[in-house]
Computed example of a mutant assay.
Amino acid sequence: MTEDSFAHLRERGMRRMLEVTCADETTPAPPIEPRSVEDHAVTVVFGDLWCGEALSDRDRRLITLGVLGALGAERELPWHIKGALESGDLTPEQLREVTLQIAHYAGVPRGASMSAIIRETTGATSPDEKGGQR
Rank of each mutant, 00 (worst) to 15 (best):
residue 59 D to T: 14
residue 51 C to P: 00
residue 54 A to P: 00
residue 60 R to V: 04
residue 45 V to L: 15
residue 41 A to H: 00
residue 54 A to C: 01
residue 18 L to I: 03
residue 44 V to S: 04
residue 29 A to S: 14
residue 63 I to C: 06
residue 20 V to S: 01
residue 19 E to S: 13
residue 73 A to N: 08
residue 56 S to L: 05
residue 71 L to T: 02
residue 36 S to M: 03
residue 52 G to M: 03
residue 49 L to H: 07
residue 42 V to G: 02
residue 75 R to D: 11
residue 17 M to W: 08
residue 56 S to M: 08
residue 69 G to E: 07
residue 37 V to Y: 06
residue 22 C to D: 12
residue 37 V to P: 02
residue 56 S to Q: 07
residue 27 T to S: 09
residue 67 V to F: 03
residue 18 L to N: 07
residue 23 A to V: 06
residue 51 C to N: 13
residue 51 C to T: 12
residue 23 A to P: 08
residue 62 L to S: 03
residue 37 V to K: 04
residue 41 A to G: 00
residue 45 V to W: 06
residue 20 V to Y: 02
residue 46 F to A: 04
residue 57 D to K: 08
residue 64 T to G: 01
residue 29 A to T: 14
residue 42 V to S: 07
residue 57 D to A: 10
residue 26 T to M: 09
residue 45 V to A: 12
residue 62 L to Q: 05
residue 56 S to D: 10
residue 34 P to H: 03
residue 63 I to M: 10
residue 21 T to Q: 14
residue 65 L to Y: 01
residue 28 P to L: 11
residue 61 R to I: 09
residue 19 E to L: 11
residue 42 V to W: 02
residue 75 R to H: 12
residue 68 L to P: 01
residue 39 D to L: 00
residue 46 F to C: 06
residue 29 A to Q: 15
residue 39 D to W: 05
residue 46 F to S: 04
residue 41 A to W: 00
residue 56 S to R: 07
residue 51 C to H: 06
residue 33 E to W: 00
residue 44 V to P: 00
residue 48 D to A: 05
residue 33 E to D: 10
residue 23 A to D: 12
residue 24 D to V: 14
residue 43 T to W: 05
residue 41 A to S: 01
residue 72 G to T: 11
residue 43 T to Y: 07
residue 75 R to S: 11
residue 25 E to C: 10
residue 52 G to Q: 12
residue 60 R to A: 02
residue 36 S to K: 02
residue 69 G to C: 07
residue 68 L to M: 10
residue 46 F to E: 04
residue 50 W to C: 01
residue 44 V to F: 03
residue 49 L to S: 05
residue 44 V to D: 05
residue 47 G to A: 06
residue 21 T to W: 07
residue 47 G to C: 09
residue 67 V to S: 03
residue 30 P to H: 08
residue 59 D to V: 05
residue 32 I to S: 13
residue 53 E to D: 11
residue 43 T to A: 15
residue 66 G to M: 09
residue 22 C to S: 15
residue 65 L to G: 00
residue 75 R to K: 10
residue 71 L to M: 11
residue 39 D to N: 05
residue 67 V to T: 07
residue 28 P to E: 15
residue 51 C to D: 08
residue 30 P to A: 15
residue 61 R to Q: 14
residue 17 M to E: 02
residue 55 L to M: 14
residue 75 R to I: 11
residue 22 C to I: 04
residue 30 P to I: 13
residue 19 E to T: 14
residue 21 T to V: 12
residue 32 I to E: 09
residue 28 P to N: 10
residue 25 E to R: 15
residue 49 L to G: 02
residue 46 F to Q: 05
residue 58 R to P: 07
residue 29 A to G: 10
residue 54 A to R: 08
residue 32 I to R: 10
residue 42 V to N: 09
residue 52 G to T: 03
residue 72 G to W: 12
residue 31 P to A: 08
residue 56 S to N: 05
residue 29 A to K: 09
